Amino acid sequence: MPTRSEVERAARELRRAGERVSVRNVRRKLPKGGSYGSIGPLLAQWKVDADYRPGKLPSEVPAGLTGAVNAFVAQVWAAARVEADKVVEAERKRLELLERVHEREAIAAWAEVDRLNEVVTDLTLKVRQLRWQVPRPPPPAPPPETPEQAEEFERLRGFVGSLPGDWLRRGGGVVRDGGSSAHPARDAEMESLLRPLEARWATERAKGAFWDGVMQEAAAVIAASKDRALGVAEILAGLSSGRRTEAVAHGGLDEAVLRREMQVRVDGGRSFRLLDDGRFGLLEDGGSPGRIEGPGRRRTGPARR
């Protein structure tokens, strides 16, 4: 088996002599010869390392060969064109058929998407309705009033009752005859008495703001409905889930409570109107805020379900 150095030395000698460096010529140069399988890989590696390029073929094609080659090439090209046209036509028909199949599948998929969207909408409404139907523990009752608180309340009531009608004028702090001045300073006793009332008022203001938010959201749910009119259960299901958690701090929220609060606004001619079928609509859509039952008769009491 020849070594790498023997193969490379024989290749260099052939290259210097201007002979073609081939496996056959290298094999002839080797002292002990060798097989093509043992010489070929070594010689191929040498050609890469030495950047060996074989000599060019003659630039001129023999005159007798040109005509035959041209005729052969023309026949091959014509036959190739015919076969290529057949392949292209068959592929075009296949793609047209595949396009029709995909179009039918896309139409079916779009119809299924529309159906599933309707299912999702229905299920979302049912989930909201079920969520509001889950039994919830009643809000915690306020702690019982202690004797000290009862005594403080009675003292406060007695103190306020003993104040003169113009007590705010102490210190000249009232608006008179178009003029204005700073509010009168409250003494320490009055400050201690009014502080619990201010806390109570803050709580009432927070509760009022909460119900204003609920009513605004209820109006938005009604406005988004198809008929712009909904029953209490549907309105309750459409409220955001955050209202349920927030409602615990204000006494809870269910159908009865929501109906009561909306009826208060119907009776006051604000935001909502009550339809004959018991549903609530928006006052801005026209009609009277109360329920009309018969000529000239109005019912403003709680709506029947």
Score class of each variant (00 low, 15 high):
residue 12 R to Q: 08
residue 303 A to Y: 04
residue 274 L to S: 01
residue 268 G to V: 12
residue 176 R to K: 14
residue 134 V to K: 11
residue 85 D to G: 14
residue 98 L to T: 03
residue 305 R to K: 11
residue 281 G to T: 00
residue 177 D to F: 08
residue 169 R to F: 15
residue 296 G to Y: 03
residue 214 V to M: 00
residue 141 A to D: 10
residue 109 A to N: 11
residue 181 S to P: 10
residue 17 A to L: 10
residue 79 A to V: 03
residue 131 R to W: 08
residue 276 D to F: 01
residue 292 I to F: 02
residue 136 R to T: 13
residue 217 E to K: 06
residue 79 A to P: 02
residue 250 H to P: 07
residue 235 I to A: 07
residue 74 A to D: 07
residue 105 E to I: 04
residue 251 G to R: 00
residue 180 S to Y: 07
residue 135 P to L: 09
residue 54 P to N: 03
residue 90 A to M: 01
residue 301 G to M: 08
residue 23 V to S: 01
residue 82 V to C: 06
residue 105 E to S: 10
residue 63 A to K: 05
residue 38 S to Y: 12
residue 189 E to L: 12
residue 43 L to W: 10
residue 120 V to Y: 11
residue 51 D to F: 08
residue 301 G to N: 15
residue 135 P to R: 09
residue 212 D to I: 04
residue 286 G to P: 04
residue 230 L to I: 11
residue 264 V to Y: 13
residue 189 E to P: 03
residue 279 R to W: 00
residue 51 D to A: 15
residue 284 E to D: 04
residue 283 L to R: 00
residue 57 L to W: 10
residue 14 L to S: 04
residue 82 V to T: 13
residue 60 E to A: 12
residue 76 V to R: 15
residue 295 P to R: 02
residue 74 A to W: 10
residue 44 A to E: 14
residue 52 Y to H: 09
residue 91 E to F: 07
residue 130 L to R: 15
residue 20 R to C: 11
residue 22 S to P: 06
residue 182 A to P: 05
residue 228 R to L: 13
residue 14 L to H: 10
residue 101 V to D: 11
residue 51 D to H: 14
residue 39 I to L: 01
residue 12 R to A: 02
residue 46 W to N: 06
residue 287 G to R: 00
residue 143 P to F: 06
residue 24 R to T: 09
residue 238 G to V: 05
residue 113 V to M: 07
residue 152 E to S: 15
residue 147 P to E: 06
residue 236 L to S: 03
residue 41 P to H: 14
residue 49 D to Y: 01
residue 155 R to V: 08
residue 238 G to C: 08
residue 301 G to T: 13
residue 210 F to D: 00
residue 267 D to N: 06
residue 61 V to F: 07
residue 202 A to W: 01
residue 32 K to L: 09
residue 6 E to I: 01
residue 300 T to E: 14
residue 123 L to W: 03
residue 111 A to V: 05
residue 4 R to F: 03
residue 4 R to W: 07
residue 46 W to S: 04
residue 228 R to Q: 15
residue 286 G to S: 05
residue 168 L to Y: 06
residue 115 R to K: 12
residue 110 W to K: 15
residue 271 S to E: 13
residue 32 K to N: 06
residue 191 E to A: 12
residue 208 G to A: 14
residue 285 D to K: 02
residue 299 R to S: 05
residue 105 E to V: 04
residue 305 R to W: 10
residue 148 E to A: 15
residue 110 W to R: 15
residue 188 A to M: 02
residue 226 K to R: 12
residue 8 E to I: 08
residue 70 N to M: 12
residue 140 P to R: 13
residue 41 P to M: 13
residue 251 G to C: 00
residue 119 V to P: 02
residue 117 N to S: 13
residue 207 K to N: 08
residue 167 W to F: 15
residue 5 S to G: 05
residue 191 E to Y: 04
residue 56 K to Y: 10
residue 258 L to F: 04
residue 117 N to A: 14
residue 237 A to M: 09
residue 77 W to E: 15
residue 266 V to M: 05
residue 294 G to Q: 01
residue 62 P to L: 08
residue 5 S to L: 03
